[in-house]
Amino acid sequence: MSAARTLDVRGKFCPIPVMETSKAINEVPVGGILEVLATDPAAEPDIKAWAQRTGHEVVQVEKAEGYIRILVKRLK
């Protein structure tokens, strides 16, 4: 799955990953994928909660070396 944009918030803490995701999602086309790279342990549950609320979809979560990769699909 190829991302239209990558947001690197590694080293940032709550609420920055969610705030930045919320801004960055508007920079990918509807149906496109935003890739978020994060180290905050709250990033996965928080971005999932944010996506549920705002009507977007977390389509994949993948653990990488020392960080997590979250793919968010812009639905509207």
């Binding site: 709550c14 609420p15 969610v18 705030m19 995701t21 919320s22 928080d46 909660a49 944010w50 609320r53 705002t54």
Partner: peptide
């Protein structure tokens, strides 16, 4: 401030 930021991000 953190709750406000998270809330604002979620509309």
């Amino acid at each position: 401030a953190i709750l406000t930021s998270a809330a604002a991000s979620g509309g």
